[in-house]
Amino acid sequence: MLGPWVDLLVFLIAGLTFPVLNVVLSSLLRRDYPYPEKVMPYESGEDPVGDARVRFRVSYYVFAMLFVVFDVETVFLYPWAVVLRELGLFALIEIIVFIGLLLVGLYYAYKKKVLRWV
């Protein structure tokens, strides 16, 4: 036995090489004929104006911030969920308080109209 993580490494290497192998093999089968119109970014036949990497609306950022808060919270819940039965009532009440605080936070964000897209 090489240990599970070495086996996992083999899976990872296979997952990385298979797409590369496919692209390389297919490139051996044909020739490329690039010309300026063909390699232009596709915009339904129009000539593209400017760069695509423009400033984006701030709502995406606000939602990302909220995501970080709740994602960290789910990491705390993982170990608790596994040993729920052994820890019993005390841990349950603690988690209810914890989740209650989060729900209050979510309600605050809702009232502050953070969750509104437009």
Binding site: S26, R30, D32, P34, P36, K38, V39, M40, P48
Partner: peptide, 8 residues
Amino acid sequence: KEDIKPAM
């Protein structure tokens, strides 16, 4: 199929 590499 040809593998088109976008210039930008």
